[in-house]
Design a protein around this nucleic acid. Sequence first.
DNA 1: CTGAAAGCGCTAACAT
DNA 2: ATGTTAGCGCTTTCAG
Lengths: 332, 332
Amino acid sequence: MSVTVRDVAQAAGVSQATAARALGGYGYASREARDRVAEAAGRLGYTPNVVARALVSRATVTVGLVVGDIENPFFARAARGLSDVLDAAGYTVLLANADEDPQRERQALRALRARQVDGLVIVPAPGTRRADMEGAGVPVVQLDRAVRGFAGDAVMVENAAGAATAVRHLAGLGHTCIGIVSDSPEISSSRERIAGYRRGLREAGLEPDERLVSLGGSTLEDGYAAAAALLTVPERPSAVFTANNFMTHGMLLAARDAGLRIPHDLALVGFDDLDWTEIVDPPLTVVSQPVGELGRTAGELLLRRIGGDDAPPRRLRLPAQLIVRGSCGARP
Amino acid sequence: MSVTVRDVAQAAGVSQATAARALGGYGYASREARDRVAEAAGRLGYTPNVVARALVSRATVTVGLVVGDIENPFFARAARGLSDVLDAAGYTVLLANADEDPQRERQALRALRARQVDGLVIVPAPGTRRADMEGAGVPVVQLDRAVRGFAGDAVMVENAAGAATAVRHLAGLGHTCIGIVSDSPEISSSRERIAGYRRGLREAGLEPDERLVSLGGSTLEDGYAAAAALLTVPERPSAVFTANNFMTHGMLLAARDAGLRIPHDLALVGFDDLDWTEIVDPPLTVVSQPVGELGRTAGELLLRRIGGDDAPPRRLRLPAQLIVRGSCGARP
DNA sequence: CTGAAAGCGCTAACAT
DNA sequence: ATGTTAGCGCTTTCAG
């Protein structure tokens, strides 16, 4: 079915090598040969076989992306940003969902490696070890989180600063009992947000209280459970910081089920902005992160590495920004 | 860097062919050879090279997915369903965003074909022609929409029935002036929903009125514009059906900007359910579609085709279901 | 500038 | 059951 370089060469009356050079745009080829080959290729409907090319040139022009779950809007937006940059450079992305599970992640990495991807962008699952990251054999850039002890490239957000800002905002509104709901501190971004929360508290002259820290898993259900748990502690917080979008969503559900009105009974600021944060009532005050930019930056960095850049590992931090809307009430 | 079959064969003291057979699990290999090869492979850290394998076996174990935009939760959920089914069968998905643009779609298809994907799942862009679909050289299954005149597999939703149900629900509540906002009728699913809207109207004994049909593009901005336009017609509708999630979102924004309260001033039912439809106030009444199932079904169908099934093209229709929440008010 | 020849890592016939 | 021999479609020396 497929038209090969050989077919094109034959039709153009040149050697296969010449046809390949003309088609691939590398090496020498006379103006005339170039034209004849192009004509023949067009007429025959030649499509290069990237697989065959990859076998010899050792470049598949394909990059692997491992995320927790592409259904999570955070990952979807990052994937889009990444894909935009890579597409523009002629690369295509192989997608894998790891479900925040190191084992599935290992499987995914194996599958992607077997397909000889030229590079990898990975959002490491909680529990992923340094050894899982090493020996990939291709450039790897971590997105949103970094694996402990693994000195590799990473593009992340200013998590601690963003969280601290959120907490100071709450404290500035007069809240003294501020809780947090987060997923596992095994996830570096979450760990940093939790640390930022504590720092923000201290900066506001407040004493961190472990009973106000509710940690759980990464799903919406987990977020709901952790949020609900936080709402039942004896001295219920008057304000809460939720460390990611599922936690924010879970908190909204839990507050509703507990009959708590936002911001009247409970002030809320969430980490990560989403499409719907503006249309809920009240609109949510959030720490917004440049998610698409995160993906684009990771793509650019990866492309540079694939291109041979072997400078020391880079840790990039993109800024997070507090967007004040209505979920914390008005300043008195 | 990479360990080859040859290396493993050598280490195990067998021929390359035997090692390949043992590794690949095809053809004959004695118990002993199998063990020796497995041991050597494990010791050396052998990883199969799918690219090389593909060149000869003509199977990349990779499937291409072309969607409008992976950031759209509808596509993301479908992608996840597809990926689940394919992963389980050892396939990996190559992702491409076409931005609802036939030209970008063609580019994407070219890139995927060049990578020798074993099959393609595609959500055709508005304006995609039959010729763009044909001659893919590999099995193709259309998702959510079907290209006019192209007799290929497609997995879709009962769009017309779903839309008609939505409209009858509105009519049953006493509304007589019911509008619709949709994206391009060039998209088959939208065309069907528009047709279903008209049918629902007639079934309720109402007369379709073209001034109440507001059509636009596929983005949230387009949805907002089309929604805003509908709200300014002389005889403003008291109820509206929005044909997809961006249109629903746009309508919510437009209604808010126009100072209209839902459901008091305007009743709303949207097509497609989303995470946030339950947490907005009022919670949205929607026609829910089995999005993940759409992706899974497409995956299963594609796998069967890749496996050699050459039965006539199949058009699968998955049911849509009205979920009554609060955006249409209570029945009097 | 062009052609001939070798080979990427693997599988598929075909012998044995 | 195992080894030998040919390629898959392409790029890449190396001569000319």
